[in-house]
Design a protein around this nucleic acid. Structure first.
Lengths: 238, 238
DNA sequence: AGACCTCCTTGACCTAGATCAGTTATCGGA
DNA sequence: TCCGATAACTGATCTAGGTCAAGGAGGTCT
């Protein structure tokens, strides 16, 4: 692994407060690997053998049942994913695949658990990270139970316009079908949701979505900090 | 607090492995209070000041936005609720109210955080508890994104029939409107979902739901361990 | 540049679910 | 035991969202 990669990974909240030797130990035990797009990294129901860190690229966390599939999350560098089953020695509940060519650091689960036992400051960081991840999923569940698809899209746009620097537009950083699945709808329905938002000052220009009337959009979306505000996070959120 | 209450609470996974003095300290700092039904215990967006333990009764965890409301969870004795914001010193994302008359132990958040710092075995239990809670919400989100309301009901019945001792029926342990909200549907729709399950061997007799053809119901429900299997849990789940 | 491929969009149609209204069942208290 | 209040059920209607099919727009490779 290149030294500057290690520096970036060390910047993650999860590793930042760990002792030097804990961090060195974890990096030492892990291996960095390159993957082309579309590679299945994790299969749900498999035993959690590794903690994964996205160093470069884009990873989709998804779940399936009865032939259906949905996107649970999207992880950009530098982000850790699927921490919980690594800690409780359980099976993964979600699968993961690369959407772009990516570099992934894989740290053996056993090593993570042992480091946690040996280094209280690392364990402390794990507590904070788990608590934040927990809260993010709760927000997502609220989003789904309390809002329609079009409202979820409107709030996603508001949140991402801010994230991308308040320039009055949002560039969707992956395929629209992926966004649709992340928001819990079909691609067809996403198109219609965009059409419905036209009357609230939203213009679709390919990948770029222009927001001409932020106040009008907010009036429709009714953003709520307890759903939409980003949880202190490891990864650039979707 | 009565001594036998303390024994039961000590039995919780969260407290079981804590040192004796840690546990004594937490119990000492906490206070046990009685509430009639319908009392708001926690208001979302309030700062997390206490960790709550349901010693007796029934507590509903719910969330609201834009005038809508949904049930996020139901906590029966002995169960802890809303641990995450207590640890990361944040606002509650969910509200809580009693549904029955209840006894609740409230432990100051600051005390929980300090005990965690002082007692690694307690912190370790917190990691496990958080990881399990995290996984439970992920299962719930999968349940909602991947299934219809009727399918969620069918799987809820299968799971609860087993929980209640495989007697061929399920007694709904709260009002049906609460179940409806927990499953993310209206009371009207829950009635229709029950009607739809008649052809799969489900008979409604008031509070008691008879399951005459478990195999037929399972064929319709397609239960999935990665959604329906109970996570190692503190509380009797809903 | 042209051909091809994939993604996105749009329309028609259908199903799932919400809402509204009216009725029936259930439970607690006088 | 009756009464009133609340919960539950049922039907009619409407909206949200999924499915199917076709057309259009944007890339990439030769």
């Amino acid at each position: 692994m290149k030294a500057d990669d290690a520096v970036v990974i060390r910047g993650l909240r999860l590793f930042h407060e760990a002792r030097d030797e804990t961090f060195a130990d974890l990096i030492e035990a892990g291996f960095l690997q390159r993957f082309p797009p579309g590679v299945l990294l994790i299969q749900e129901s498999d035993r959690a053998d590794f903690l994964h860190v996205v160093v470069e690229g884009l990873v989709e966390i998804f779940a399936t049942t009865a032939g259906r599939e949905t996107t649970m999350d999207l992880i950009r560098p530098v982000g850790v994913f699927i921490l919980a089953p690594v800690l409780s020695e359980q099976a993964y509940l979600q699968s993961a695949r690369t959407l772009e060519k990516s570099r992934i650091l894989m740290i053996p689960a056993e090593k993570v658990r042992r480091s946690m036992t040996l280094d209280p400051s690392f364990m402390r960081a794990i507590v904070i990270e788990l608590a934040h991840g927990y809260r993010r999923v709760i927000k997502d569940l609220k989003n789904h139970k309390l809002r329609t698809g079009t409202e979820r899209l409107a709030n996603w746009l508001i949140h991402n316009e801010i994230d991308q620097g308040r320039q009055g537009f949002v560039d969707i950083p992956f395929e629209k079908r992926v966004l649709a699945s992340r928001l819990g709808m079909t691609p067809e329905n996403l198109s219609r949701a965009f059409a419905a938002l036209r009357s609230h000052g939203v213009k679709v220009k390919g990948i770029r979505i222009e927001i001409t009337e932020p106040e009008g959009l907010a009036r429709f979306a009714l953003p709520n900090a307890l759903i939409d505000a980003p949880e202190g996070h490891l990864s650039i959120q979707s």
